[in-house]
């Protein structure tokens, strides 16, 4: 709730077929920050083949919008990897 001492939080864990694909998803989704003074923060990290996303927000409404649009973009980067992957070998 607004003004509550404890913010709302949401955690998302997404496994990928490989560490490289998890890293690609992370680097694709990380550059765009949440709006400043938006009452929300989002942190992305990668552990091996797992993408972790952690949100903290003041209001459920703001959290819902951010998570929902993130899921759309996550789905798009996964679809792009499916159609235009697998990642090229850097030694080529």
């Amino acid at each position: 709730m607004a003004g509550a001492a404890q913010p709302l939080s949401f955690t998302l864990t997404v496994p990928f077929p490989s560490c490289l694909e998890a890293q690609i998803a992370h680097d694709t989704l990380a550059p765009d920050a949440e709006p400043r003074r938006g009452g929300i923060t989002k942190q992305l990290s990668v552990n091996r083949n797992i993408l972790h996303v952690q949100w903290q927000a003041d209001e459920a409404r703001i959290l819902r919008v951010s998570v929902s649009s993130f899921l759309d973009l996550l789905s798009l980067t996964v679809q792009t990897m499916d159609r235009f992957g697998p990642p090229l070998d850097s030694n080529l």
Binding site: I24, T28, D32, L73, T80, P87, L88, S90
Partner: peptide, 19 residues
């Protein structure tokens, strides 16, 4: 914003896939 971001996501992904 939203349309720009959609297209940027695909560009970032393929840039990494294709190195």
């Amino acid at each position: 914003g939203a349309p720009l971001l959609t297209v940027a996501i695909v560009a970032r992904t393929v840039a990494q896939l294709w190195k």
